[in-house]
Design a binder for these strands. Sequence first.
DNA 1: AAAGGAACATACTACCGGGTATGTTGTCAA
DNA 2: TTGACAACATACCCGGTAGTATGTTCCTTT
Lengths: 216, 216
Amino acid sequence: MSVTESVDVKPQGREDILNAAARCFMDRGYTMTSIDDVARSLGSTKGRIYHHYRSKADLFFDVFRTGMTMNFDTVVPIKNEARPAVDKLRRMAQAHCRAMIRTQPFQRCVWEGVEMLMRGSTTPTQRATLVDLQAMRENYADIFRTVLKQVERDGLVKIENSSIALQLMFMSLNSPLFWYSERDDQNPDAINRIARQCTDFALRGLGLNEELLADA
Amino acid sequence: MSVTESVDVKPQGREDILNAAARCFMDRGYTMTSIDDVARSLGSTKGRIYHHYRSKADLFFDVFRTGMTMNFDTVVPIKNEARPAVDKLRRMAQAHCRAMIRTQPFQRCVWEGVEMLMRGSTTPTQRATLVDLQAMRENYADIFRTVLKQVERDGLVKIENSSIALQLMFMSLNSPLFWYSERDDQNPDAINRIARQCTDFALRGLGLNEELLADA
DNA sequence: AAAGGAACATACTACCGGGTATGTTGTCAA
DNA sequence: TTGACAACATACCCGGTAGTATGTTCCTTT
């Protein structure tokens, strides 16, 4: 009937572009990556990309948005489980960390995107998109903030400045973004061990007792 | 007698350039910062910068090197004190963290520089400089690695993968680079509180006991 | 006081990369 | 079969920026 299976989500043609762009942006950074670079890595030319995206920034922001969507998809289900807050926090943290490793190219773009947002180096045209992305990221952080607050109310964690505590937690969980290289054993078991170590570090850092680090 | 006080260190004219460059690179990133931007922020023109530096990359690398030198100057004296390893580690970590806040523009350049080194995006001409900087950074990490190893031998800390543990520790201590804004109270007391919270987080994360977090 | 050079400013070049305008090909609907 | 449009490729423009070549000024040295 219709040309595409489902019109609402990503058009098929864009998926390959997104993956290639994410990898290029990760490898060389946003400004150092030219549209021709992305096109070349696809075996195509500029024309293909500019047919789907109106600007380089638009492409980058779509990578950003896709990365954030991946994060929501992994964490929200866990947040909605019926468990003690500590258990949810631990599982959310571990899942988040694994996502950082699995979808590394996209998450590096999210990171660089956040820096772009903070610097505010943007044309007025893209302001609308930016506000959206800003809110998206804030909402994602809020999920953790809420659960962490709950764990604090349960007296299981000692927090001085809660804003800083959240930053430190995310820094630890995001850490693999900067030193993990996918040739270091791609197998899920190795990834789990890394995510486990990062999560343990973060939760210990927040003052969680040793017994609560283990799975229920 | 001689024109400059001491010939061996930074020529006087370069200091202002370094400070301005560090701030520009922090604000807009390496590639987004033009030489004219740096010059304009000095109230000068290109000519002044290119009189002292042969290229934009050379200027950036000098900021990098200066930042690393600052780090060595703050941490090495503590490392050489006659104390238990735990005490040295705690003091080094705290001093490092404070340095991240005080010299933020330079340290952000160090961070971006490390990313540049990893990406390997460099002309053959600058290879020699890069190897130097790479080694410098490695030596700095080694200071912490050695002390941390000692603390581990003392059984005061539980570490699974020591390489990852070091990364996590640095991530926590470097964390203010990305969220501290100098208008958030510049006074030393506030800075100390922030550094204290980051250090506590890092050391707890490494599994240090609560009693050992306090100063001796 | 004359020469030389340090410390810049000014003016210019060359190139790269984002964006656009325009062709080309296949596919589907009527 | 033919128009229409999606999905690209090709060719081109043009602004911004790194780097250079050439003044200009002042200070120092002899």
